[in-house]
Amino acid sequence: MAESHGHSPLEQFTINPLVNLNAGGYSLDITNSSLLMIISAVFAIIFFLGATRQRLIIPGRIQIAAESLYNFVESMLISNTGEGGRKFFPLVFSLFVFVLLCNLFGMMPYSFTATSHIIVTFALAAMLFVVIVIASFMKHGLKFLSIFLPSGAPGWMAPLLIVIELFAYLIRPFSLSIRLAANMTAGHTMLKVIASFVVSLGVLGGWFPLLFLVMLTGFEIFVAILQAYIFTMLACVYLNDAVELAH
């Protein structure tokens, strides 16, 4: 859909290798996507190490920020899974901070949103799904398969219900990953399209889409945080199946 004279709004999602590395024929290039992910991870590590360096009883501001983030994710996990879910806290917290930072760093000018590619979000969601399945089998054994047949269903409906429940269960990593990637992609695409209106309307008419662009950028920052929260909350809800059988 590129116009003959301009650029397509989807051009911002191309992955460009920055540093070319090779290991036995496999490319380990550092691309703009992997650079953003490295920056997110390093920023998270430095922030939390620095915030908890002096463990004051009356915390300073950065320590308050880190502790409130910890409490936020902890309350979300415990309210969804109960006390048995506490052993999944490092996983859920890392997921939340990583997705939040990747989303937010994508809002910087000239930056790249690493979570706007389905492969990145699918890697996170698939890893979570594998962890949940393995943890469920380790905890409940073969009784875990009883979640596919809700109690109180009539006997004749059982085969159909099992198939439907199985597919609804298997689609979870896909819906989780596509939700995050589509929200990021759609947001940034819309920003680029409206930005092209600003340029094409020139000095006289360009102030109106510019105002709209400012509001839309604010809304996109909100969506970045909200989608990270929804991803983590769904991870907690799915973890509930691993901790205790709901049906």
């Binding site: 819906s175 596509i178 939700r179 990637a181 589509a182 929200n183 992609t185 759609a186």
Partner: peptide, 8 residues
Amino acid sequence: SMGLFSLV
């Protein structure tokens, strides 16, 4: 997100 699936 449901609407955005159709965008995908």
